[in-house]
Simulated assay, not measured.
Amino acid sequence: MSDFLMTRTLDEHAAETALRHDVLTGLTRSPKVLPPKWFYDARGSELFEEITRLPEYYPTRAEREILLERALEIAAVSGARTLVELGSGSSEKTRHLIEAMPALDTYVPVDVSESALKGAAQTLLAAHPGLRVHALVADFTKPLRLPESPGPRLVVFLGGTIGNLLPPERAVFLADVRAMLSPGDALLMGTDLVKDEAVLVAAYDDAQGVTAEFNKNVLAVIDRELGADFHTADFAHVAVWNREHEWIEMRLRARSDLLVKIRALDLQVPFAAGEEILTEVSAKFRQAGVRRELAAAGLELTHWWTDAAGRFALSLSVADGIGTDGREGRADGTGLTVPAPDTAA
């Protein structure tokens, strides 16, 4: 792959160190918590791909619908010559954008998985031999130094992953993204939208039990990597809608009193029957809220696209006061689309 470069910004032991820290701090606090990134070993990634094909799980299909319908418009509005994808994984959805961008020079996928980056690059370069790929092995939740590449750049953050961050974490993340952007650059972000509670809960608690297995996979990861003796059968998968915060919470609930040993940490973790580990928060959004959070980070929402059913949204935003053509002035002075105010309650 002559047009492929890879830059590693993570220490080779960074994942192990982070896992130790997250398990130690998360399982010795009350209530107990584990970050959702530890779902995704090879088995977890397979399970998530299976989830995206379930009838109950609409976000992947809804986002793909928008990308297929709007890719040419996104390409035209952004004018991007460099596409930066945060949490790129297999880069599958991004291919719709790449195919719509004839002027695209460079693709910069950012992911913690070196193998995922190499596999995606191989596939993309076979389909687009003129494309340059400069992959970053990095944690996208930390400030990034992007490689030199031609502008304008379009930074994309898809899949509704922004919802896995708590509000203070989202504020830091969006401020870091704002710091990446030069005049003319833009952010394309996917957000799952608030909808009927039954639809939301079903998406995270499917009838086939795939999401339950995915949730419990975090325990299998800890068993393997840290020598723990979790047994997945000892925990029940729970998905609930938090009306106050408008997010789904995935939890693991102990079926009985337990004492779990984690040898690598020399740690014993007691569980009372019914005690839960919070493993994921998945926030759902309204347009007005997205606009406010972007504005607080110095970003101005200029385009808002949804699927036909209004389940999911892609938003395009630019550095406040700078349009995608690099000129100073409000978005409505640059010919960009300014969405109507959100009137949802």
Results as ranks from 00 to 15, higher is better:
residue 94 T to L: 06
residue 264 A to Q: 12
residue 203 A to Y: 00
residue 269 V to R: 07
residue 109 P to N: 08
residue 336 L to V: 03
residue 11 D to G: 10
residue 302 T to W: 07
residue 241 W to A: 12
residue 299 L to E: 00
residue 229 D to V: 07
residue 315 S to I: 01
residue 197 E to T: 14
residue 211 T to H: 00
residue 189 M to L: 15
residue 325 D to L: 02
residue 261 K to E: 12
residue 206 D to Q: 14
residue 258 L to D: 05
residue 321 G to Y: 04
residue 45 S to Q: 09
residue 21 H to N: 12
residue 14 A to V: 02
residue 331 A to T: 02
residue 70 R to Q: 15
residue 34 L to N: 04
residue 320 D to P: 01
residue 198 A to Q: 15
residue 161 T to N: 13
residue 268 Q to T: 11
residue 301 L to M: 14
residue 331 A to S: 12
residue 42 A to C: 04
residue 202 A to E: 07
residue 318 V to R: 04
residue 303 H to T: 05
residue 261 K to P: 05
residue 135 A to L: 13
residue 63 E to T: 01
residue 205 D to C: 10
residue 324 T to H: 07
residue 135 A to F: 10
residue 10 L to Q: 01
residue 160 G to N: 06
residue 152 P to H: 04
residue 116 A to H: 15
residue 287 Q to V: 01
residue 204 Y to N: 03
residue 130 G to K: 15
residue 121 A to R: 07
residue 315 S to F: 01
residue 232 T to C: 11
residue 240 V to S: 10
residue 96 H to I: 04
residue 23 V to C: 04
residue 37 K to L: 05
residue 309 A to I: 00
residue 194 V to P: 04
residue 229 D to I: 06
residue 96 H to T: 05
residue 308 A to P: 00
residue 337 T to L: 10
residue 87 G to F: 01
residue 59 P to S: 05
residue 49 E to S: 15
residue 167 P to I: 06
residue 172 V to W: 07
residue 274 G to R: 06
residue 270 P to S: 14
residue 181 L to N: 02
residue 11 D to P: 10
residue 292 R to A: 12
residue 282 S to E: 06
residue 204 Y to D: 00
residue 173 F to S: 00
residue 256 S to A: 10
residue 182 S to D: 11
residue 108 V to K: 01
residue 283 A to D: 08
residue 158 L to K: 08
residue 1 M to R: 13
residue 271 F to Y: 13
residue 338 V to P: 05
residue 236 A to N: 08
residue 90 S to L: 01
residue 140 F to Y: 15
residue 11 D to Q: 11
residue 29 R to S: 13
residue 184 G to N: 10
residue 16 E to W: 11
residue 166 L to E: 11
residue 261 K to S: 10
residue 196 D to P: 05
residue 134 H to G: 06
residue 13 H to Q: 13
residue 110 V to Q: 03
